[in-house]
Design a binder for these strands. Structure first.
Length: 223
DNA sequence: GACCAGGCACATC
DNA sequence: GATGTGCATGGT
């Protein structure tokens, strides 16, 4: 019943949790901030996302009606510190237009939709890809979906659990089919992978001092 | 100055 | 369907 992969994934969690403890994710105050942050953090360091969110807060823009009504040029200027700001302003506006069109601007109604259906809906919005959709579902909606990111792929690949060519859905499935669909567990697991990735599993200089080092391990180019 | 950061859409082959 | 490219600020 307990496959090797399932045991390994649980052991990874335990090793990371022992090393770092709870991560208290998502680092945002409300579901609204989580959703905005999920778009702003695309290919962007969280530090810069915080600056953008601070700008929005100071302008009293952490509010869907105000975000709907603000001109896109003004929104873009406020989120400028997050980088690719014109693209991200368009993406936020796309989400907002969809939120009103589909749920009359009501987040609670949105999250009352069943997980698989809501995920499919989110993926139709321009600017909401798989990682952003899953981050919104898990961290803003409290729904049991696993978030995959570049760190997750790199860490699992270096430990021999996935192929180099594994795509997002394959990696997501490795977690969801081998672990219980538990929201606090998925929440903590992804956060811990990001922490390990930031500190120890960089593209270069590869890995050092990683809490997962006792496990079987490899790096690109040394296979 | 190069590389990287909690991606995504779009063009092209 | 795989691969390449633009987006863009700020830290190391």
């Amino acid at each position: 019943m307990s496959t090797r992969t399932a045991r390994q994934l649980r052991a990874f969690f335990d090793a990371m949790h022992d090393a770092y403890g709870p991560q208290h994710w998502w680092p945002a105050r409300t579901p609204t901030e989580v959703i905005i942050g999920a778009v702003l953090t695309q290919n962007t360091a969280w530090r810069n996302v915080e600056r953008a969110i601070d700008n929005l807060r100071r302008s009293k823009m952490l509010d869907w009606s105000r975000l709907r009504d603000v001109p896109i040029e003004q929104l873009a200027e406020l989120i400028r510190p997050a980088g690719t700001y014109q693209v991200k302003a368009r993406r936020l506006k796309s989400f907002i237009a969809w939120l009103w069109d589909r749920y009359d601007g009501d987040l609670e109604r949105m999250f009352a939709t069943s997980l698989p259906a809501l995920r499919e809906e989110l993926l139709t919005i321009s600017g909401i890809g798989r990682e952003t959709a899953d981050a919104i579902l898990l961290y803003a909606g409290g729904l049991p979906t696993f978030v995959v990111d570049a760190y997750t792929a790199r860490i699992l690949h270096r430990h021999g659990l996935i192929d180099d060519s594994a795509d997002y859905d394959e990696i997501k499935d490795a977690f969801e089919s081998n672990l219980p669909a538990d929201v606090p567990y998925f929440n903590e697991y992804h956060a811990l992978l990001v922490q390990v990735g930031k500190q120890h599993c960089r593209p270069r200089p590869k890995c050092e001092g990683c809490p997962l080092e006792p496990f079987e391990h490899r790096v690109e180019g040394s296979e």
